[in-house]
Design a protein around this nucleic acid. Structure first.
Length: 728
DNA sequence: GTGTTGAGTATTTTT
DNA sequence: TACTCAACAC
């Protein structure tokens, strides 16, 4: 039985709304997920909808499983199976129907690492230098071209190139080659990248009316979570999935929390929705249950600076709560030190536990200073999204072996493990095998088989290669009747994988991860006893988040990017690095970008339930050698809305106490001396990458400089443009 | 030819 | 820190 009495007036109206298109504008902490899940339960219990005909789309896998569990809690043993991310929904559709597009159903999905491996191959074959185009850049262009459906051969103007992210005209032919080859390789190996899942599903539903109608009839009701982060392609998909005779769609979102425009989301999608679905019923939720009045005041003040926005303030019946604290440290170390001290206080006075505290930052690299300080002070912490579980080397290795059992012709995967553990097959041999395959139109695996059968006379065809083939054959024949988890254990045993890990660093951590994989596999099999190894591999190929259920019981402070924190809440929130050029980022190109930064800050602030700390420092920028200034967001929030604290230390960086007004007038160059003056030992210099450091040695044309951890002592050419010296 | 090591270089956000 | 690449030992 569902309990509707816990809902407030607006929530109840949204949950019990009529059929047809609905849009719920729900601010942070207003019970968005509760409304969505209760709506699903309501449809099933009160409106007699079939739970197998309800489709709910979430932004993360975590949100999907949370939603599923909540519904099970409300309704008992009813599993709404069509809850998932756009990607997982598309995967399920394609696994059924991709053959309609002339593709094999036995495709597999590649992650970013695989994509980069493929790009490296293309570089080798096309003799493209990594120095001209960095693989990450190539990948960025590939993604842009694919999602925007752009043909690089049609591009003529420099402006169009710039919009894509290409700034040198001479490189266009290289990019054309890379993009074309990339697509070829995916088709040859029957691979789909994350974008392809959406692109192919869209193509399928758009072009094939029989299939489209099949899926439209499959779903009686569609619900969308985090609607503000939907991109154009995803919106088109929704339009194709929705049954045009019913138009039963229920979208929940908050335009102020659009923080994924770089992945194609656009704030104007709310208008598109209203245009597309006439007579949409709009519900607004603005009563916040999460935060104190003080915290909401900060959030409301900040977001009000965005011009392109429908004004809406969050209100709450909660207490005023503690003051929001803004700390300004003279150096990044002092900033980190302040955070540790506060955490120690909060925990020692037993007000809060470590796991109720989160440190949020704009960019991943900012976690390092904090991490160091936490280690020094024995504060338990966990960095989320650090390296995702399934991207870890040991996990990828073992999963690759599993993949090979299912699909030996997957060249990329096979090459990943051919020398793991090390078995004397180096890059030269691998290249030779590959080239032979390319010339003779054989897959990597087929070439290996020829080697083993002595059908290839070549220097590189030697004992170690043959032994690998024997190992593979042994795995194939003896794993046929094993369960998934036993197959995994078998692989670990046969490859002596534990010994291999012992030869690497961090053996304990890695071995623990392997065991975690075994547990995850066992759990999967217990949950879905009829599913095959292929099903398991498909599932985990989309599950990129780190496994967090254990972490919560670990009682440690959480560290994560703000993007990662979306949808979570913590009693105590520290937002660090509130500095110009860090947050907002120095990379911004337009006013729209600035508004997005403000929304990111808004998301960060509204994660907090009880206590909020905003911290910044006046040290040196990790990006340029400039001095940092506090973020404009602090000014926009307004001094009256928080209590300001400063570090006591007097430094050369002492600036006006009224630092707001000094932000613009502060002349950075004043602090530097010309570089052609002679250096002496003890001078402080600033390096664009390593930050500040002290000269500890001077040679004829180089300096020995001691930089802060983790950089340590470096030799720098005296005249190098990346260094500046401080005035004495 | 293979594997290790040290130097050099570079840092937004993620399904 | 994390990643690549060139130089060296085997």
């Amino acid at each position: 039985m569902i309990d509707l009495s816990k809902l407030n007036h607006n929530q109840l109206k949204a949950v019990t709304t009529e059929v047809g298109p609905v849009l719920v504008i729900a601010g942070a902490g207003t019970g968005k997920t509760r409304v969505l899940t209760t709506r699903i339960a309501y449809l099933i219990e009160h409106e007699n909808y079939d739970h197998n005909k309800i489709l709910a789309i979430t932004f993360t896998n975590k949100a999907a499983s949370e939603m599923r569990n909540r519904i099970i809690n409300m309704l008992g043993n009813i599993n709404v199976s069509w809850i998932g991310t756009y990607h997982s929904i598309c995967l399920r559709i394609l696994k059924q129907d991709i053959d309609q597009l002339g593709r094999d159903k036995n495709f597999s999905i590649i992650d970013e690492q695989d994509q980069l491996d493929i790009i490296h191959d293309i570089y080798k074959e096309g003799e493209i230098s990594i120095k001209d185009i960095k693989p990450k850049k190539a990948l960025e262009i590939i993604e842009n071209v694919k999602t925007e459906n752009i043909n690089l051969f049609n591009i003529k103007s420099m402006k169009e190139l710039n919009e894509l992210g290409i700034y040198k005209y001479d490189l266009i032919s290289s990019f054309r080659y890379i993009v074309k080859q990339y697509e070829n390789k995916l088709i040859q190996n029957n691979l789909l990248d994350f974008n392809d899942l959406l692109i192919f599903a869209h193509k399928l539903l758009k072009e094939n009316s029989v299939i489209r109608e099949k899926w439209q009839n499959k779903f009686d009701y569609i619900l969308v979570d985090e609607f503000q982060d939907t991109n154009y392609l995803q919106f088109q998909l929704l339009n194709l999935l929705i049954n045009p005779n019913k138009l039963n769609i229920f979208a929940v979102g908050d335009p102020d929390q659009t923080i994924y425009t770089w992945r194609g989301a656009y704030p104007n999608i709310f208008n598109d929705y209203l245009d597309n679905f006439k007579n949409t019923k709009i519900h607004v939720l603005d009563l916040n249950y999460r935060s104190t009045k003080n915290i909401l005041r900060v959030a409301n003040h900040l977001i009000d600076y965005n011009n392109q926005r429908i004004k809406k303030d969050l209100v709450t019946n909660n207490d005023e709560g503690d003051s929001v604290i803004c700390y300004i440290g003279d150096t990044s170390q002092l900033e980190a030190h302040f955070i540790t001290q506060q955490i120690n206080d909060l925990v020692k006075t037993k007000k809060y536990n470590y796991n109720e505290i989160v440190i949020l930052y704009r960019a991943k690299y900012l976690s390092r200073t904090i991490e160091q300080e936490f280690i020094n002070n024995n504060i338990p912490y966990y960095i989320f999204g650090d390296i995702r579980f399934y991207q870890r080397r040991e996990i990828k290795d073992l999963v690759s072996y599993l993949k090979i059992l299912v699909k030996p012709k997957d060249d990329i995967t096979l090459r990943r493990i051919i020398n793991v553990p090390v078995r004397g097959i180096g890059q030269k041999t691998i290249d030779s095998i590959r080239n032979y395959g390319l010339q003779n139109n054989l897959s990597f695996y087929e070439t290996l088989l020829k080697c083993a059968n002595n059908q290839i006379e070549a220097e590189w065809n030697k004992k170690s290669v043959k032994e690998f083939v024997v190992l593979l054959e042994y795995l194939f024949t003896n794993s046929k009747n094993l369960s998934i988890v036993d197959t995994l254990r078998f692989i670990i045993k046969v490859t002596k994988y534990e010994d291999h890990l012992k030869s690497l660093d961090q053996f304990e951590d890695r071995w623990e991860n392997v065991n975690e994989l075994i547990v995850a596999t066992e759990e999967y099999q217990a949950k879905f006893p009829n599913n095959s190894l292929v099903d398991f591999l498909d599932e985990i190929s989309l599950y990129t988040e780190s496994d967090d259920h254990k972490v919560q019981s670990r009682n440690s402070v959480s560290l994560m990017t703000i993007h990662f924190a979306k949808g979570t809440e913590f009693k105590v929130v520290f937002i660090m690095g509130m500095n110009e050029d860090i947050f907002p980022s120095y990379r911004l190109q337009s006013q729209n970008d600035m508004e997005e930064e403000r929304r990111i800050a808004y998301v960060a602030i509204t994660r907090s339930m009880k206590k909020l700390f905003l911290t910044c420092n006046l040290g040196f920028s990790p990006i340029s050698s400039d001095k940092l200034t506090p973020s404009r967001f602090l000014k926009e929030i307004g001094k009256n809305n928080y209590q300001e604290m400063r570090s006591e230390m007097k430094t050369i960086s002492e600036i006006d106490l009224d630092w707001y007004d000094s932000v613009a007038s502060f002349n950075k160059e004043d602090n530097y001396r010309e570089n052609n003056v002679e250096f002496k030992i003890g001078d402080v210099i600033v390096h664009t990458v390593f930050g500040s450091g002290v000269i500890i040695g001077i040679k004829s044309d180089t300096l020995e400089v001691a930089f802060k951890a983790p950089f340590g002592i470096k030799s720098i050419i005296k005249t190098h443009k990346s260094i500046k010296r401080l005035k004495n």
